[in-house]
Computed example of a mutant assay.
Amino acid sequence: MTTQATPATPAPTAEHRTVITPPGRLHLPAWRELWEAREVLYRFGARDVVLRYRQTAVGVAWVVLQPLASAGVFALVFGAVAGLSSDGVPYIVFSLVGMLAWNLFNGVVSRAAPSLVANQALVSKVFFPRMLVPLSVVLAVLLDFLVGLGLLVVLLVVFGVSPGWGVLATPLWVLLTILVASGLGLAGAAVTVRYRDVNYALPWVLQLALYGTPVAYSLTSVPDDLRWLFLVNPLTWLLEGYRWSLLGFAAPPLWQIAGAVGVSVLVFLGGTLVFSRMERAFADVI
């Protein structure tokens, strides 16, 4: 009589469990949970890029045309008509640098604030780290910035503008801009869930900030008795950093660089705290 061996029973595998714990006293986000769910951020970001340029005649060319047209208008109004100084750089190049930096900031804030309401079906029914929704807009806006930066490089070559070694600091200014814009965007997204007035007030506030920041004109063109108003604006510090790195201007004073780093980190942390504190009520009020 022959015996037949029975197959060995596979060892039980460990179950994957997700434990949801109450927030701590400071309502800090679960950074490990955000990292583990990073694929969600990539998916949201890729979807934004595809939806933005689907069924458009010129597609990604809009990324180049928009800042270039704005820079051209600024060069005509502030350079040719008003006769403001661009500190020795062709005005179209000068204003394009300002528009690229401003569009990076403005794009993240204005698209992050309404992002939760725009995705309310997912927010109210599917469990995932909600913070990834407003943060995902950074990917699409950063792609627009990089395309525009390529156009700027072409213009720098055409007009013979040499940035110098300061160009190596460009990633720093981009990172700081993303941090401060993401912090404001996170806070705006959380507040918008409860108060839809933010959708009406935010474009107006950003428009005022555009004119209150030396985007299209040089800081040296501001009268001495009013210049302090611009120097207390953290966005001015970032713009001066961009112009040092991309146009070869004098390096900003050390206090501006340190202030830009400190304010950007504090604004980002403040935005995450506001978001985390209000996140538990999103599904109930959205």
Rank of each mutant, 00 (worst) to 15 (best):
M1I: 13
M1P: 12
Q4M: 15
A5P: 13
T6C: 03
P7N: 04
P7H: 11
A11M: 13
E15M: 15
T18V: 15
T18R: 14
T18C: 14
V19C: 07
T21E: 15
H27P: 10
L28H: 11
P29H: 09
P29I: 12
A30K: 14
R32P: 05
L34C: 14
W35A: 15
E36Q: 14
A37D: 15
R38M: 11
E39K: 14
E39I: 13
E39A: 14
V40T: 14
R47S: 11
V49N: 09
L51P: 04
R52E: 14
R52I: 09
Y53L: 00
Q55R: 15
V58G: 08
V60P: 09
A61T: 11
Q66L: 12
A71G: 01
G72M: 00
F74I: 01
A75S: 10
G79R: 08
G83V: 06
S85Y: 07
S86G: 12
D87W: 04
G88Q: 12
G88F: 12
G88P: 06
V89N: 02
V89W: 03
F94T: 05
L96W: 02
M99E: 10
N103S: 04
N103T: 06
F105V: 01
G107S: 01
V108W: 00
A112D: 01
A113Q: 10
S115K: 03
N119Q: 13
Q120V: 13
V126R: 03
P129K: 10
P129F: 09
V133P: 02
V133T: 07
P134D: 07
P134C: 09
V137S: 07
A140M: 11
L146G: 10
V147Q: 06
G150S: 07
L152Q: 05
V154Y: 11
V158A: 08
F159N: 13
G160D: 07
V161Q: 10
V161P: 04
S162W: 15
S162G: 14
G164Y: 07
V167P: 09
A169R: 07
A169W: 10
W173E: 00
V180F: 02
S182M: 03
G183L: 01
G185F: 05
A189D: 04
V191D: 02
Y195P: 11
Y200T: 14
P203T: 04
P203H: 02
V205P: 03
Q207E: 13
L208R: 07
L210E: 06
V215Q: 04
A216S: 08
Y217I: 01
S218W: 01
L219V: 10
T220H: 12
S221I: 08
S221H: 01
P223T: 05
R227E: 01
F230R: 01
L231R: 06
L231M: 10
V232I: 12
L238R: 00
Y242H: 03
Y242Q: 02
L246V: 07
P253I: 13
G259W: 03
G259E: 06
V261D: 05
V263W: 03
S264W: 00
V265H: 06
F268E: 01
G271E: 00
G271R: 00
T272L: 11
T272C: 13
M278E: 15
R280P: 08
A283W: 04
I286T: 04
